[in-house]
Nucleic acid binder design. Structure first.
Length: 270
DNA sequence: AACACGACCTGGTAGC
DNA sequence: TGCTACCAGGTCGTGT
């Protein structure tokens, strides 16, 4: 579910609420989310550690601990994290609880249970994420020239190119489709064949869409199952198959790409 | 090396 | 009502 803006919102909220807190115990209500690590292992690796920093990298969340280890969480499709005042009455969708010494807890809610929680040495995690997550699209490093270089080196269709976390980290199915609409690029078009001005427009669209979403999502992304409500009105193509394009009026189309649905306007995007 | 595809999970909804 | 089929914001492992 969550793409970069939602994950960023989760991190900001956690920073406000649990930065500096000490972990008393981690309870894995669904042990498989940590596999191959066991609940015992997870408990031992986090015991009595405090949360010194909370970092987002792409869609990954890192809780850096005082014991040189980090809790690595990926929300996948339906995950969410929020601090709760009392962990004695967990919801059925909770997959893990990080109990804090002050009595509160961080709940890892995830109806589909596809999310992940692991703990490793911080250096180890850094190493792994270094190879699996690419540039931060909201960092200064991500400019038109950077995107153009990436594009010229790829043979992928535009949509799949944007979804590849090793190149650009944080775009998912919704924002990739939206960015392509704003840059007027057909999602099936090979990214390397897109003109430089269009790539510059794409870079600008990515930054603008993600920035806007980070700000609006931060206000609304709280309870589980409550995500795109506020922005669904501003989506131009995602989830709008058969509805008319907000720019030209043509019917929005849906095509499969990489096993997922891609939405686009057949007139505006080419 | 660069794909496609199933697996991993649950819940909601459309259609019969 | 109840069943089935399909869909969902992500990633990984395996196969061609």
């Amino acid at each position: 579910m969550p793409e970069l803006p939602e994950v960023e919102a989760v991190c900001r909220r956690l920073r406000e609420q649990v930065l500096g807190a000490t972990i008393r115990r981690i309870e894995l209500l669904r042990p498989a989310i940590a596999s191959p690590q066991t609940p015992d292992e997870i408990r031992k690796l986090a015991r009595n550690a405090s949360i010194l920093a909370i970092e987002r990298r792409g869609k990954n969340i890192l809780l850096h601990l005082s014991n040189l280890r980090s809790i690595h969480i990926h929300l996948r499709m339906t995950g969410n994290l929020y601090s709760i005042p009392d962990y004695r009455f967990p919801l059925a969708s909770y997959r893990a609880l990080i109990a804090l010494t002050d009595g509160r807890a961080i709940a890892f809610g995830d109806p589909r249970a596809l999310g992940r929680l692991n703990i490793h040495a911080t250096t180890e995690i850094n190493q792994r994420l270094g190879t699996t997550t690419g540039v931060e699209p909201l960092s200064p490093q991500f400019d038109a020239a950077y995107l153009t270089d990436l594009a010229r080196a790829s043979r992928l269709p535009a949509k799949l190119f944007l979804m590849d976390q090793r190149r650009i980290a944080g775009l998912g199915n919704i924002y990739a489709a939206e960015a392509l609409f704003h840059a007027r690029i057909h999602p099936a078009r090979r990214i390397r064949s897109v003109s430089s001005p269009r790539l510059a427009a794409l870079q600008a669209a990515i930054v603008r869409i993600l920035s806007d979403a980070v700000n609006s999502v931060y206000l609304t992304y709280t309870a589980p199952g409550h995500m795109l409500a506020s922005e669904s009105e501003t989506l131009m193509v995602y989830g709008r198959e058969g509805e008319s394009c907000r720019v030209c009026g043509r019917a929005i189309r849906r095509i499969p790409q990489g096993g997922r649905s891609t939405f686009y306007c057949p007139r505006c995007q080419n």
